[in-house]
Amino acid sequence: MSDAPSLRSARPSFNAGALGRGLVIPGLIVIAWTVVTHGGLVSSNLLVPIERIIALPFTDEAGVQLWPALLASIVRLIFGFAIGASAGIALGGLMGASRLADRALGPSFNALRQITLFAWIPLLTAWFGNGDMPKIIYVAMSAFFPAALNSYIGLRGISAQYFEVASVLRLSRLTRIRKLLLPGALPSIFVGLQIALITAWLGTVSSEYAMGNGRGLGGFLLEGRGQFRMDVVVLGVVVLALVGYLINVGCAKVFRRLLAWQGDNK
């Protein structure tokens, strides 16, 4: 056969070059940081040497609190994300699959989407107090909108050509959902989940910060600021960023594996 396909499957699982390039800027920051703090350019209370930050969660009395705070935040993230993302996929999926639902719910959805999430905090605390409940609702809301929007876009983006194939082949409703709608929307749903996870993580920390009360990374930051411990604050910020970064990398890896059918050119 003249037109034999080449079955591409091997993909370098670890790209050392890209990782090396990605480390250049963080590396420069660390060097600059070290030069500034050890060169006597600033007093050490406002900018702490990097090695003290690294040692902090293991040695310092206030720093050790990072671990239970981190755990509490991650638990909130998981609950809030699970609730918000599933509700988002359900609503986005409904609006994407049904013109009627789109017309009925679309305008309200798009209006609500315009409200800065932060504006909900006073309402949430008024209705639900300042315990875990309003925080988890806030996290769920942060995950809800990107998950809903991208599920909707994913379904709407499926080519009409495939729907013609489905009707020519007389596919049943169930098969249409399983073999066309779901896999067709999946790449976009995954993008939505990745964004939702990040916004939910930011939502977790900001809700803890804004609603005070209770353990969490946001509370950890709040306490550090209250005690004028800049080292604690910097540690909190670094961990916040690190978790976000890991979420991004982890999502990309998992989703790429699940979307193997896209091949390399996507």
Partner: peptide
């Protein structure tokens, strides 16, 4: 199903293997 059609574009579902694409017509 007594009428089959092939379009100018193959219109295979990109997320299904060759055999799963072909089996679609036998669904149900």
């Amino acid at each position: 199903r007594e009428r089959g059609i092939v379009f100018q574009e193959h219109r295979l579902f990109p997320w299904l293997t060759v055999e799963d694409n072909i089996a679609l017509g036998l669904d149900g």
